[in-house]
Simulated assay, not measured.
Amino acid sequence: MSHTADDTAEIIEDGDTVRLASGIGPGDLAVARSECGQYLLITCSDALVAMYGAMGGSVEAVEFADGGSYSVEELLDVIGEA
């Protein structure tokens, strides 16, 4: 997995899009569910980031560093639910 110079991966929420740094791909993502709804899990090196409200909430798309992107519905089809 690629990282920025300070050895952190960048995850940016830009309006309705989550932009992921180089080295984070669909295999690093999962969707989980709680009583509050679905949330996006992002594995980033040894860290796990949970974005509550990202799936079916304020986020409409996830964009990867290579320019590929998925809508929430497409992403759910690709990665499934944890």
Rank of each mutant, 00 (worst) to 15 (best):
V49H: 10
V18R: 04
G68V: 08
C36Q: 10
D77F: 13
R19W: 10
I79G: 07
D66F: 05
V18W: 05
I42H: 01
D66L: 07
H3R: 04
E81Y: 15
H3E: 06
S58L: 09
E60L: 10
E35N: 01
S58C: 08
E13I: 14
C44W: 03
G80S: 08
L29F: 01
A5M: 02
D28C: 10
A21P: 01
V59T: 14
S58Y: 13
G53C: 01
F64R: 01
C44A: 15
L40A: 02
A21E: 08
M51Q: 11
C36D: 09
P26Q: 11
Y52W: 15
M55L: 12
G67E: 08
A30P: 04
G15S: 04
G56W: 01
D77M: 14
M1H: 02
S34A: 04
H3Y: 04
G37H: 01
D46K: 12
V59K: 03
S45I: 13
E63V: 11
L48Y: 11
M1S: 05
G80R: 09
D28T: 05
D7F: 06
A50F: 11
C44M: 13
V72K: 07
V49S: 12
G56Y: 00
A50Q: 14
S71F: 14
G68I: 08
V72N: 08
L75N: 08
A50R: 14
L48D: 13
L40I: 03
V31D: 02
C36S: 10
L29V: 02
H3K: 05
Y52F: 15
G23M: 07
E13Q: 15
D7T: 04
A21I: 02
V62W: 03
V49G: 05
A30T: 10
V18N: 04
T17C: 09
D14Q: 15
A47T: 14
M55A: 05
T17P: 04
G53T: 00
I24M: 03
S69D: 11
G57D: 01
T43M: 08
E63K: 14
A47Y: 12
A50L: 12
V18Y: 03
E60Q: 15
M55H: 02
C44Q: 14
G27E: 15
Y52T: 13
I79N: 08
I42D: 07
M1L: 03
D6F: 05
G25A: 09
S71K: 12
T17F: 07
A21F: 03
L20C: 06
S22L: 07
A5C: 01
L20H: 03
D14Y: 14
A32Y: 09
L20A: 05
P26L: 12
G15D: 06
